[in-house]
Design a protein around this nucleic acid. Structure first.
Lengths: 196, 196
DNA sequence: CGAATGACAGATATTGAAATCTGTCAGCTG
DNA sequence: CAGCTGACAGATTTCAATATCTGTCATTCG
């Protein structure tokens, strides 16, 4: 724990905040705790983040962005759109399920954070549906998907698979049979995308 | 408010409990309140329901059953399965949305109740998917739907439309554009059901 | 005699006083 | 002088004392 002597940067504060959230949970993580973890006064933290809410929002954004990045690779791949769509949805599902299953407390912490940061979540969802839209549009152009409005269709796919990525369904991700349920939903959607 | 003199029956207790829940909310509704509303001692209530939890579960069941009954009519109709499927889903969506929109507090109360009564909810969901299965099977037999496993397919349809009936998405039901989102999802699913 | 009561023990919830936290800012420090 | 500090006011949280509730059951009532 030596290099506390480095200059205080927003990045270091965010890292310390994540650690404090991990240790104390969302209800008891205070700005004072973050400052203490960094060996500075809490006033210094307020030099980088106007409010506690802003600090928590920044942490939330970082966390959400990490998910987006992991998925954007699949969008950029050069393969058949149907395969990419299936992989994208499966990767999203698996990532969420792993996070919720491996460290339930941390996942609960981030669920609280996302609940209080509707704006950041909204941007994240816009980001994800934009990714999906690219895949759907590629499929439409390749003739493998049939749609007049790729964006609306992508949103429909995203909403229809909500059960497998929306945190409010996290409890159900451990139940036996979810795998099959996920596959059934995706199969049905892909058949719908292919059209007649 | 005269006929308090009738004999104390489980039915009357349930009605009083609903009223107390409506007035005080789920956190502050006590068995003592229910007894007071009925003009009896709380000991008498315990003669009909072993615990407070059992009483709340019974109230929850009643509420959920009312929804099921409203939908079962559509299942029994003698029309094309696709139309029945669309109407069934739309009716479910509209009913939930109306309940959540018209009396948000009461809806929140029942959301708390359903959260604490996983078993009753499970039975309710089994009931609803059984209804859906009947429609899907009728469609398969009529040749308008293509599926090897009507029950699994019905569950997939139910899960895919979760955003439009699961209480944890209630906030989103008031947003502009949900109508279109609902239609987009249902259209996609119906196309998937029709097969090639 | 069956149904209802109300006193009771242990569990849970409420309350208000004390402690802590948030956000600001005048002043210190390197 | 740019960045940090720590004292401060008002808001929020904690905690322990107090009140209420749950569930039981010996007793009463009709």
């Amino acid at each position: 724990m030596a290099p506390t002597s480095e200059t205080l940067t927003a990045e270091r504060i965010l890292e310390a905040t994540e650690e404090v959230l991990r240790r104390h949970g969302p209800a008891k993580a205070t700005v004072v705790d973050v400052a203490r973890a960094l060996g500075v006064s809490h006033g210094s933290v307020y030099r980088h983040f106007r409010t506690k809410a802003a600090l928590r929002e920044a942490v939330t954004k970082r966390w959400l962005d990490r998910t987006s990045e992991a998925l954007s690779g699949i969008v950029a791949e050069d393969r058949d759109p149907e395969g990419r769509l299936r992989d994208w949805l499966r990767t999203l599902f698996e990532a969420k399920r792993r996070k919720a299953g491996d460290d339930p407390e941390l996942f609960a912490t981030y669920t609280v954070l996302t609940d209080e940061n509707g704006t950041a979540v909204g941007e994240h969802l816009a980001d994800l549906t934009a990714q999906l839209t690219r895949i759907v549009r590629a499929g439409a152009e390749a003739g493998s998907f049939e749609t007049t409005d790729p964006e609306a269709t992508a949103r429909a796919v995203f909403h229809a698979t909500g059960r497998f990525h929306d945190p409010c369904h996290a409890r159900e991700w451990e139940r036996p049979g979810v795998e099959e349920e996920f596959t059934a939903v995706v199969d049905l959607l892909v058949r719908g995308l292919r059209g007649r």
